[in-house]
Simulated assay, not measured.
Amino acid sequence: MSTPRWELHIRPMFNLQDWDHMRSRFDFSDVNAVWASRHAILDRLRSDDPMPPRPEGGPWPREWVDLFDRWIVAGETEFGGQPPRLTIGQGTGYNLAAGFGKWRLTATVSVPSPDSKAWLHLVAFSPAVQTLTMFIEAPANPAGPASDRPLLAMINASPALQEVVVINANGETRLPRPGAGT
C-alpha cells in the first residue's frame, strides 16, 4: 500500500466548506497547520460528534479517516516526524510534438532514487492552455542514487489548445502548439 501524500490524498479531503467554516480558527489548506494539529483533528474525526457536522456535509467516510490516520503514522514512523509530501520535480529538455491525434510531451526528469516516481499532473485547464505540475514521489528511504530519466505524457489536443505550461522546480516552461508559427 502506498504512502498517502498531502497533495494527492489529504488536502483534497478538506473541501471549501470545511475551510470556510474553520478559517477563523484554522487553515486546512496549510500542511504545517494540519500536521501540527493532526492528532486533535483525528480525535475529532473519530469522536461521537465528528467533523464536519451533519448540517455541513456530514462526517468523513471511514475510509477517509483511515487514510488520514495512515498519513499521520507514515509521517511519524517513516518520514522523521514530517508530513509525507510530494516535491516539485526538476525537468529539462521539454519537447511537444504532434502525432496520431495527440501531443507527445517529453522531457528528462531528475529523480532522487531509482524507486522514485515522477509524473505531470494537470493543475489548470482552459480551452487554450493546459498547465501541468511535475511531481516527484520519493520513498521515505530511497534505494540507490539520484538519476535522470525520460518522462512521457500524452495530451489530448483540441483545436483550441494553443499552449502547454509545465511548472517545475526551475519555474515555468511554455510550450506552444506543435507546428505553430511554422
Results as ranks from 00 to 15, higher is better:
Leu45Tyr: 10
Leu45Asn: 02
Leu45Arg: 09
Arg46Thr: 06
Arg46Met: 12
Asp48Gln: 15
Asp48Lys: 14
Asp48Ala: 15
Asp48Pro: 06
Asp49Val: 07
Asp49Phe: 07
Asp49Glu: 14
Asp49Lys: 10
Asp49Trp: 01
Pro50Gln: 05
Pro50Ile: 04
Pro50Glu: 05
Pro50Trp: 04
Pro50Leu: 02
Pro50Val: 03
Met51Ser: 09
Met51Tyr: 03
Met51Gln: 02
Pro52Gly: 10
Pro53Val: 04
Pro53Ala: 12
Pro53Ser: 11
Arg54Phe: 10
Arg54Thr: 15
Arg54His: 12
Arg54Gln: 12
Glu56Val: 12
Gly57His: 06
Gly57Thr: 08
Gly58Pro: 06
Gly58Ser: 05
Gly58Ala: 06
Pro59Leu: 07
Pro59Cys: 05
Pro59Thr: 00
Pro59Phe: 05
Trp60Arg: 14
Pro61Ser: 07
Pro61His: 10
Arg62Ile: 09
Arg62Gln: 14
Glu63Ser: 15
Glu63Val: 12
Trp64Cys: 13
Trp64Gly: 14
Val65Pro: 00
Val65Arg: 05
Val65Ala: 03
Asp66Leu: 13
Leu67Gln: 15
Phe68Ser: 00
Asp69Leu: 14
Asp69Arg: 13
Arg70Trp: 03
Arg70Thr: 11
Arg70Lys: 14
Arg70Val: 03
Trp71Cys: 01
Ile72Cys: 07
Ile72Ala: 05
Ile72Asn: 01
Val73Met: 08
Val73Asp: 14
Ala74Trp: 02
Ala74Arg: 05
Gly75Asp: 06
Gly75Val: 04
Gly75Ala: 08
Glu76Gly: 09
Glu76Pro: 09
Thr77Asp: 08
Thr77Gly: 08
Thr77Phe: 04
Glu78Val: 01
Glu78Ser: 11
Phe79Met: 09
Phe79Tyr: 15
Phe79Pro: 01
Phe79Lys: 04
Gly80Lys: 07
Gly80Ala: 10
Gly80Phe: 09
Gly80Thr: 08
Gly81Val: 07
Gly81Ile: 05
Gly81Arg: 07
Gly81His: 10
Gly81Pro: 09
Gly81Tyr: 02
Gly81Gln: 10
Gln82Lys: 14
Gln82Thr: 09
Gln82His: 14
Pro83Leu: 02
Pro84Trp: 03
Pro84Asp: 07
Pro84Cys: 09
Arg85Lys: 14
Leu86Tyr: 01
Leu86Ile: 09
Thr87Arg: 14
Thr87Ile: 11
Thr87Gly: 12
Ile88Lys: 02
Gly89His: 04
Gln90Arg: 15
Gln90Ile: 09
Gln90Glu: 15
Gly91Asn: 01
Gly91Met: 02
Gly91Glu: 02
Thr92His: 12
Thr92Pro: 00
Thr92Gly: 10
Gly93Cys: 04
Gly93His: 09
Tyr94Asn: 08
Tyr94Cys: 03
Tyr94Pro: 06
Asn95Ser: 15
Asn95Gly: 13
Asn95Thr: 13
Asn95His: 11
Leu96Gly: 00
Leu96Phe: 01
Ala97Lys: 10
Ala97Met: 10
Ala98His: 04
Gly99Ala: 09
Gly99Val: 00
Gly101Val: 07
Gly101Arg: 10
Lys102Ile: 11
Trp103Leu: 02
Trp103His: 04
Trp103Phe: 13
Trp103Ser: 00
Arg104Val: 07
Arg104His: 14
Arg104Pro: 04
Leu105Lys: 05
Thr106Leu: 06
Ala107Thr: 01
Ala107Val: 00
